[in-house]
């Protein structure tokens, strides 16, 4: 039985938007619940996929795990320790274990440093190494991520997208990370390179026993690489379960719509929910003022089909994540 490496309990992250200089006249500041009451756990050597539309709070979760942004409430337990309470200094040992692959290809790489010094810095940040050891370690890293040795003397600007991504991964591995937050690692890459990176991530997981939180909006890749998948909508997890079940037997209407919207599948897939574009107010949702009760109700085809039942609108009866067997959880009053 694999050990639980990361557990997130009731994580909340609210952004407070000051109302500008007219705040006193307009009343309260606006509170944007980017992440609202999210709980999940990841076991060792496991990948959890996190999917959702732009602005649903996936990236914010990744950033809170690395303490790049403070949390409003909730606990993040990594290796049986709550990291939200640690001071930056106490958190340092955890920096070795949790790393992030940033969405932006250039993100991790200082444009004015050569690749060798970027890797060297990552190697020496937590350990003191001699030059010979550094050279050996760099050689090993390059082998792990399948990068040519001649690239070491280049600047990041001279590398192609795939190579930059590999350097980013190598850098995370150099610290000795066991848990990687991969924030859209393939979105900026070409199709042929994307496959290389996905294969690399799978290889590393097999050989080094890494765990991933794989944040992506590419549903196919998420389904391919993840063991379990959580679907987010407006800061909340609406469905969570094993990857295959989420993709093929979705119980939440939103998940169903998400997967049926894959362009490839569109022509042949028969989904349980009709996704007529004329119905509902697709693509128009107000993040600042989520619908009371179930947040998905304004876009929900089931809500529409059932004649707008009042339970979906009731603020006091907002649906909770309920277990429906086999570690499959759904936040819906009328699961499909």
């Amino acid at each position: 039985m694999a050990k639980t490496i990361l557990e997130v309990e009731n994580l909340k992250k609210y952004y407070i938007q000051p109302g500008g200089i007219f705040t006193p006249f307009k009343g309260a500041k606006r509170i944007i619940p980017a992440v609202d009451d999210v709980s999940f756990y990841i076991k060792e050597n496991e990948t959890m996929g996190l999917v959702g539309e732009t602005g649903c709070g996936k990236t914010t979760i990744g950033r809170t795990l690395l303490k790049l942004t403070p949390v409003t409430a909730g606990r993040i337990i990594f290796d049986e320790k709550d990291i939200t309470q640690l001071t930056p200094h106490e958190f340092l040992p955890f920096r070795r274990q949790v790393q992030m692959i940033f969405q932006d290809l250039d993100a991790a790489l200082n444009p004015k440093m050569r690749i060798r010094s970027i890797l060297k810095e990552a190697l020496t940040v937590h350990h003191r190494l001699s030059d010979a050891e550094i050279n050996r370690e760099i050689g090993e890293l390059l082998e792990k991520v399948n990068l040519k040795k001649s690239k070491l003397s280049n600047f990041p600007g001279e590398l192609s997208g795939g190579e930059k991504r590999r350097v980013g991964i190598a850098r995370a591995l150099a610290v000795g990370a066991r848990f990687l937050v991969a924030d859209e690692p393939t979105s900026a890459l070409d199709v042929s390179i994307q496959a290389q990176v996905v294969n690399l991530l799978k290889d590393l997981q097999k050989n080094l026993g890494l765990s991933y939180l794989f944040i992506s909006h590419d549903l196919r890749i998420v389904e391919l690489i993840s063991h379990k998948v959580a679907v987010m909508y407006l800061g909340q997890i609406v469905e969570m379960g094993m990857a295959g079940r989420i993709a093929h037997e979705p119980r939440h209407p939103y998940t169903s719509i998400l997967w049926s919207s894959l362009v490839e599948k569109k022509s042949r897939e028969t989904t349980k929910v009709s996704t007529d574009s004329k119905k509902g107010t697709w693509g128009v949702f107000d993040f600042e003022r989520p619908h009371t009760g179930c947040r998905f109700a304004p876009r929900c085809p089931v809500y529409e089909a059932k004649g707008k039942p009042s339970i979906c609108n009731e603020p006091s009866k907002a649906p909770q994540l309920q277990d429906i067997g086999d570690a499959h959880k759904v936040r819906c009053h009328f699961p499909l």
């Binding site: 539309e53 732009t54 909006h217 719509i257 998400l258 919207s261 894959l262 362009v263 693509g283």
Partner: peptide
């Protein structure tokens, strides 16, 4: 987003 994408393709 994927959902919007499929709408535009349609």
């Amino acid at each position: 987003d994927a959902t919007i994408q499929s709408k535009i393709v349609n």
